[in-house]
Design a binder for these strands. Structure first.
Lengths: 233, 233
DNA sequence: GTCTATAGAATGATAGAC
DNA sequence: GTCTATCATTCTATAGAC
């Protein structure tokens, strides 16, 4: 019921037994350990730590309850692995974007597109983080990784805003502040998307686009810049 | 563990027995029923439906577990009451603001101040709504009230933005879209405030202020309007 | 109204066979 | 590695005394 401090797992680089095929793989997991973590993440994000039972997870995969305890020390340990999996997934998208040295406008547009297209994984991360923040015991590594995720998000956005300003492409402003603004708004989008099931994700992100370009191009008339604005949509 | 459809309670206008004083009242509850709902809301918001036990709630108030079942049919029924309580609380602030016919700038500034000062109750509402949205069974009344809350928020903001435009005070824009934008961002602020415990609430709301006035006054230079902007902070 | 006592169900976790 | 069987615990909910 409460999360305890558990660090050690006997989860190594496990390879699924050749004899029995994975019944419900297909999310990119390589081994059973990861499969459990991925499946647990789905369920924990959909509901939460307390209301998802070990039985639920085992059932979802089609194995016995006891098998989970072969890979993980406890339910909490599995939860920890699920969060780590979520963070790992989220970071993957980050590095993809960071790698390309496109012009600032494209990077920001890509970023926003990411949040629309990758709604599910990002939402899972936010939801599980929220769940974790309400739990009693804290796991230093998880805390650190969550913070790192948001810092990284801010860093990437801030950097490319700064570059745009330097290049004279954008109106001068505080890149850090704007980056945080964007990132905070996107969290709001994630939450709204769940609370109100008819929430228009596309429109919400579109509204953010308008705001950003209005600010960075220094006018309220955004139509004139629509060539840039609608790129990559 | 899962929320069922429960409608009927024997919770009437209950008055606490004179013989025994309420041990831990002081949140504005009038009767035991409300006291349970208010306390349950606190705990459900802090953690969630599944991880808060009937025992926790009873303990918090200092009464016996069985007493809860005198006022509520089940744990789910208490949860329903807790959400209703949260919505009721949130609406109270709304009507206060709506009542006064101040100028649009003041109304918006007040609105933002509200979200800083009333962080706790608003957060509780968002958190519990999120929890509810993840539950299996839906209660029509709750769904309706949550939606009504957000609609009302949008309506109030939209109305005063529209009035500002009509009066020639604001630059023309889509009032509905801007209202939704503000409201979505504020949800993001709520969530961030919990996930990252060192999140600067004031700065986040301040950033929104800047965006809003930049848009409504039609320039990026907001300093000139600072007389209006910093009103009611 | 509030408490004591307890039934009944579900859950996390372990031992041990295959 | 995976399963069966089971224990210990915890939790919701009820019955009934005061």
């Amino acid at each position: 019921m409460t999360l305890g401090m558990i660090d050690k797992t006997h989860r190594k680089e496990l390879t699924p037994s050749r004899g029995r095929p994975l019944s419900k793989a297909g999310k990119g997991e390589v081994n059973r350990g990861e499969q459990f973590a991925a499946t647990a993440l789905d369920l924990f994000a959909e509901r939460n730590f307390a209301s998802v039972t070990i039985k639920d997870i085992a059932k979802e995969i089609g194995v016995n309850t006891a098998l989970i305890y072969y890979y993980y020390k406890s339910k909490e340990d599995l939860f920890r692995a699920a969060i780590e999996f979520a963070i790992h997934q989220a970071f993957k998208n980050f590095s993809n974007l960071q790698a390309r040295h496109e012009n600032p406008v494209d990077v920001i547009n890509n970023w926003l597109d990411n949040h629309v297209q990758l709604y599910a994984p990002i939402y899972k991360f936010v939801k599980v983080s929220l769940d974790y923040s309400g739990s009693e015991t804290k796991i230093p590594i998880i805390d650190q990784q969550i913070r790192q995720f948001y810092d990284e998000e801010k860093r990437i956005l801030s950097k490319c805003i700064g570059r745009g300003i330097q290049q004279g492409q954008f109106v001068a402003c505080d890149p850090d502040a704007l980056a945080l603004f964007i990132s905070t708004y996107l969290d709001g989008v994630m939450v709204r998307g769940v609370i109100l099931n008819d929430f228009d994700l596309n429109q919400a992100v579109w509204a953010l686009r308008q705001q950003i370009w209005a600010k960075l191009f220094g006018g309220n008339q955004v139509g004139e810049k629509s060539g840039l604005m609608t790129a990559n949509i």
